[in-house]
Design a protein around this nucleic acid. Structure first.
Length: 591
RNA sequence: GCACCCAUAGCUCAGCUGGAUAGAGCGUUGCCCUCCGAAGGCAAAGGUCGCACGUUCGAAUCGUGCUGGGUGCGCCA
């Protein structure tokens, strides 16, 4: 086993104990108590749901019973006897259908606290990703206007997921795909042209089908500054391409600024337009053709929802059904130009050729129908080597004053990212956006997210951290050394109260939780964990009101205080680490 | 018609890639506190995990078939 893995296991107590279990099983096999060569991959060590069952539980006896040809309880008892000889295991007893419940020596929990203080916010970092290159494509909003609230959630999820994967050992690239190659950017150009005419004192003709938003007025003014009156009364052929580039450029500047305000920085911006004329699209399609996955054919009309103007038509199709899709998909329009799918294929082929080991796309839920064909394309073009995971982001419903919130400060009909961040702040926005799994709708209530109460999870988690800092401040004032090196020297043997052990157990779960969240590409788990961690901490704090022995600062007893403060400090460190992944700034003090 | 997503306490939602008596917050009920260890605390009640079969020692979790809601379904991205 590589040294890195070993090092990580020492930080992850669950991994360490699992290793103890599998080593004990191997020893039993060596003695002949178990058959040799059993597959141990299904053996797990996890926190039991009921803390009364112990600190950790393993299912080893149950999953091995059948392949070993032995009764679960017999295996469990042999394993228990073996583990009891391990000084790290205080109690091992068999329960239920064959669970082995373990209670650990308190020194292990104290070791976790020291690990946290030694590693700081790197505690919980994992080598799970083993340095593999993963590309996370997210936002990818059309460059035809400012980002609206619908984009915010995707931006936050993508960014937090990127942080999470980096924390878990992946080499992450954050990428934005600019859809600047389709018809919508010509519409943008024509809309901007009307604003340009307006800037020159003419009446703009914002006809049906153009973008009416006020946000294009500055674009018109900038065009006037650049071109003066030279483009007035010129035919579209003269100005379309230039104005299109100019306007999309300005839109992208605005989008970049919006993302920055939200705390999101992309590593790579890829352009759809740049794929045209370079032969990349043709090459991607040609590659598929070489696999016999491109053909000329006629699609059946969808049953039950036949368009009025349906007529059978021969078109160029991608045989996506060969890679799990339901029907084959057109890549070329009847006029010979590419469908939107073709450059997307080329773009994903581009990502594959750049050497990524895994691809992740964050899409809006309305793109659900696009998932299978995209996966089919990546599967075909990577020879099945590169997995593509697509996360669909459900709607955000805004609320204010108990009513749906729809107004915008801008003239458009949508709420912009800026509207949201200006009112709620980036930290609050980011946290709340992660308090739901990606595929369920989320309510965002401007009143509630800013409330300073237990009901608001952002406040609740931040408050826990602020309390930790308050303890440290008070302790320092009382003359107790609270820097990490001093705390690391504290004797923790007295910190064994059940409530304190519960706190340590929760902290010890952090490395395990990081891996679970990273494995599933599920950043929301971090937010939920932080809430639970904060809850545990507030609970312990509150018990200090009634039971002075549980207070972190013990009057007149610097040594005991230091030990208990270590527990608080470790909690604060993990909260800071978790908030760091979410992209939320921990606050030192509540105001 | 087909595909994908969702369905868990009155409400809003978690649920560890199959584990033990299914959790949290809000709300409800009861008790406590008015102390800057402050922006409340403790406890209780509340569930056929949409329905029905199936796989398994064991299912909210996996499979099949339904019901209800959402999204989408050839020259829009």
């Amino acid at each position: 086993m590589p040294g890195q893995q070993r090092k990580r296991d020492q930080m992850n107590l669950f991994a360490e104990i699992r290793l103890a279990v599998t080593e004990a099983l191997a020893a039993l096999a060596e003695e002949g108590a178990l058959p040799k060569g059993l597959d141990l991959t299904a053996v797990s060590v996890e926190p039991p749901r009921d803390p009364a069952h112990g600190d950790m539980a393993t299912n080893a006896a149950m999953v091995l019973a059948k392949p070993a040809g032995l009764a679960p309880r017999a295996i469990a008892e042999a394993l228990a006897a073996r583990l009891m000889a391990d000084p790290r295991i205080a109690v091992a007893d068999v329960a239920g259908p064959g669970f082995l419940n373990l209670r650990l020596a308190p020194a292990l929990w104290h070791g976790v606290l020291r690990s946290v203080l030694q590693s700081g916010t790197d505690f919980g970092r994992s080598e799970l990703g083993a340095g593999q290159k993963v590309n996370v494509e997210f936002v990818s909003a059309n460059p035809t206007g400012p980002m609206h609230v619908g984009h915010v959630r995707g931006a936050v999820v993508g960014d937090a997921l990127s942080n999470l994967l980096a924390f878990a050992g992946w080499n992450v690239t954050r990428e934005y795909y600019i859809n600047d190659g389709g018809a919508q950017v010509n519409v943008l150009a024509r809309s901007a042209y009307e604003r340009y005419r307006e800037a020159n004192g003419l009446e703009p003709a914002i006809v049906e089908g153009l973008y009416p938003g006020d946000y294009l007025i500055p674009v018109g003014e900038a065009l006037k500054k650049k071109y003066g009156t030279s483009l007035l009364d010129q035919p579209e052929e003269v100005w379309l391409a230039d104005i299109r580039d100019f306007a999309t450029g300005m839109m992208m500047d605005e989008i970049r600024a919006d993302l920055k305000q939200l705390g999101v920085t992309m590593d790579v911006y890829s352009s759809e337009k740049a794929l045209y004329g370079t032969g990349e699209i043709e090459a991607a399609i040609q590659t598929l053709r070489g696999m016999d996955l491109i053909y000329e054919g006629v699609l059946e009309p969808p049953k039950g929802k036949e368009p009025d103007d349906w007529e059978p038509r021969v078109q160029t199709l991608f045989r996506s059904t060969a890679h799990g899709d339901d029907v084959d998909r057109p890549v070329m329009k009847s006029d010979g130009s590419w469908t939107y799918f073709a450059p997307d294929i080329a773009y994903h082929y581009n990502k594959v050729r750049r050497g990524f080991d895994a691809l992740i796309d964050i899409f809006g839920a309305d793109h659900g129908g696009y998932v299978k064909r995209m996966k089919a394309a990546v599967s075909a073009l990577s020879g099945g080597r590169v997995p593509l995971d697509i996360k669909l982001i459900q709607l955000v419903k805004l609320w204010k004053g108990g009513e749906p919130f729809k107004m915008s400060k801008r003239a458009g009909t949508f709420v912009t990212l800026r509207d949201v961040v200006d009112q709620a702040g980036a930290d609050v926005t980011r946290f709340i956006m992660l308090t739901r799994k990606n595929d369920v709708a989320l309510d965002f209530d401007f009143d509630k997210v800013l409330e300073q109460s237990k009901d608001n999870p952002v406040f609740y988690v931040q408050y826990a951290n602020a309390r930790v800092n308050s303890i440290l401040r008070k302790a320092r004032d009382a003359g107790i050394a609270c820097d990490d090196p001093s705390l690391l020297a504290a004797d923790l043997t007295g910190v064994t109260h059940e409530a304190e052990l519960a706190m340590m157990r929760k902290i010890a779960e952090w490395p395990r939780l990081v891996e679970i969240a990273a494995r599933g590409n599920e950043p929301h788990r971090i937010a939920f964990y932080l809430y639970e961690l904060a809850s545990e901490f507030h609970g312990l704090w509150n018990r200090g009101n009634d039971e002075p022995a549980l207070r972190f600062i013990q009057e007149g007893n610097a040594a005991t205080s230091a030990a208990k403060i270590t527990l608080a400090r470790a909690t604060g460190v993990v909260i800071a680490a978790g908030l760091g992944i979410l992209g939320v700034t921990p606050v030192e003090e509540m105001r």
